[in-house]
Design a protein around this nucleic acid. Structure first.
Lengths: 342, 342
DNA sequence: TTTAGCACTCTAAACTTACGAGTGCTAAAC
DNA sequence: GTTTAGCACTCGTAAGTTTAGAGTGCTAAA
């Protein structure tokens, strides 16, 4: 792939940015007039023909303007686009949201409001992956007796996540024994990453406490569940925003996307795969076929310097990448700060 | 409003059922041929003109067939429609789902799977309102010390619902005092309906324990939150199903509905308002303007003979009412049985 | 190397036409 | 008096037709 000279880059930049706002194929005349006054339309025309040959632009049909190809967007995102600052009122809005959130410590609320803010400010659909149990560290394990036969296991992580489960007690146990077991488990497990609680380690524990099998099994089951994938806590915001995009006037595409939105598993997979910095996946770079005409911008957020979750914005490939990246960075930062205090 | 003679009722029935499956205006010829061979099209025509005059049918335009008006659907639902039995494979599917669910005691999973089953079997969008804290009875209140300054309050209801909240401890308290307070609160509150924990009662508690203000305030706050509306736990299933309905080929309508789907508050309001038996609300009978072209069939489900939540199916006014009612009844029953064991 | 000019292409929108399903009315039949 | 056949009329949809205009590629001159 030949490197693009500066002029071609400028023209590509013009086509991409214009198409992003207008959603209409961009003609040589438009580029010449609106972006690059010192060249004639004819010259632009030649360059655009070259850019098409090189794979950066395509023509919907013979006598229409050009639109960026996936490769075109990729080049734009990698080398061309600058930083789009937020409007003052957008900044203000975000600050307001996170000032509010500082008061409520419920992680679910934080996540949900983040999804809402993200979609509101970008006008796209937002996805937020809640702190993954798997990526958290066990802080404390508690056993709250409920009755003779039942107890509540409370699992608390450093991410502030709390998971409950009711278990059946073997009747043979008295209170002392119980608290001894719990104490022992805490000793052994506290501070360990839930993901890294390897099968081996759990197995060892199992054998160490083999005489209290029943009880232990149940508590360990909770851990197993926690470290498994099944926890797909993805929150969406602004799902109706996709309908604002002209590329989704086709109901079939919308239907597929909406159906995808209900599949938490697959969504969280999309968000989990990129686990550092801001990532942009364009069109078919997303593995899911439903998203072949979409782009997904994601970033992770941290707790204690470890990535524990992710936020993302889903829009058409014709997306305002620069702005979205700014917003994503800003929000993931705010989220980091917010969680640090937690 | 004149009562309809039997023939008119038969014709109205024919028009409604035909329109429900075809989504096309129904002509006199169709009724005569497909439903009522012993009368000519001309006769049907006259009757249909009458039915229109009476407000049960409308014409989209002068020379088209008739479609049921809202009043027409209402009459159909109240007096005409019979009981639609489920297909054996549908029965089997439902039994399978609830056999599975019997194993997992997590209320959230039960709710979510119910939503999924409901939408899958009806091909409409389903709404499920989780057990309302407000409608539950307090079973136990626990305080789990986390550190010097923090503790976890665990609130357990008879509906199996568990709510956690982290509170800050006033340092002046030692463990004994804590457990005494918690013991006292349990004594006072256990078995009480959370909704009926009146402001007065809470106030009394506040004064009784006024010297431990700080701590108490925080625990009572949890109760306040629980009894307030803010808990809008509505789960949706099959949101993409609305796009299968020809009446929603218009993107604007879909957009409004999708946006509504994100407003948990308003949705749960819709479900809460009908709190006994199966209720059918057609078109503008729903208060929300977004739902003026939809029908909502809802039913409550019970725990210990008290309604604690609701399930619902949302579709176009041209809905398979008979089948939906059967499904809703069946599922709410299964849910009742499932929760009884809990 | 750039640009003006021009013939050519192709879509989208506007307009026309044709078809057919369905109606309401009238007058005859039961 | 009720039912039905017949018929002229309405109106929306779908299928063609036309037109306008935006944009292109190519050629030849600057």
């Amino acid at each position: 792939m030949t490197a693009l000279n500066e002029r071609k880059q400028k023209i590509l930049h013009a086509v991409v940015t214009d198409y992003i706002v207008t959603a209409e194929p961009v003609g040589s005349r438009t580029v010449s007039r609106r972006y690059h006054t010192d060249l004639s339309a004819a010259t632009i025309r030649n360059e655009m023909a070259d850019l098409e040959e090189l794979g950066y632009l395509t023509q919907p049909h013979t006598s229409a303007g050009r639109i960026p190809s996936q490769q075109g967007y990729r080049f734009y995102v990698d080398s061309l686009m600058g930083v789009a600052p937020l409007a003052p009122e957008e900044e203000k809005y975000l600050s307001g949201v996170y000032l509010q959130l500082r008061k409520m410590k419920e992680i679910d609320q934080i996540i949900q409001h983040t999804a809402k803010a993200l979609s509101l400010i970008t006008n796209y659909t937002s996805l937020v992956l809640g702190p993954q149990l798997r990526r958290s560290t066990l802080k404390q394990l508690h056993l709250v007796p409920l009755s003779e036969e039942r107890a509540l296991v409370v699992l608390i992580t450093d991410t502030g996540f709390i998971k409950n489960k009711i278990i059946e007690l073997p009747q043979a146990l008295n209170e002392d024994e119980l608290s001894r077991i719990v104490g022992y488990l805490n000793e052994q497990l506290a501070g360990k990453s839930i993901e890294l609680l390897s099968a081996a380690q759990l197995k060892q524990l199992r054998s160490e406490l083999f005489h209290k099998m029943d009880l232990l099994e149940q508590m360990l089951l909770l851990l197993d569940e926690s470290s498994s994938e099944s926890e797909s806590r993805v929150f969406l915001g602004g799902t109706s925003n996709i309908l604002n995009q002209p590329e989704f006037k086709d109901l079939e595409k919308v239907k597929h996307l909406l159906a995808l939105f209900e599949e938490g598993e697959r969504l969280s997979f999309m968000l989990e795969t990129t686990m550092d910095g801001v990532s942009i996946r364009i069109g078919t770079e997303n593995r899911l076929s439903e998203m072949n005409e979409c782009s997904l911008v994601t970033a992770t957020y941290m707790l204690h310097d470890r990535p524990v979750g992710a936020i993302g914005v889903l829009g058409p490939t014709r997306m305002e990448y620069a702005k979205v990246v700014t917003v994503i960075e800003k929000i993931s930062n705010k989220l980091n700060h917010l969680l640090d205090v937690l």
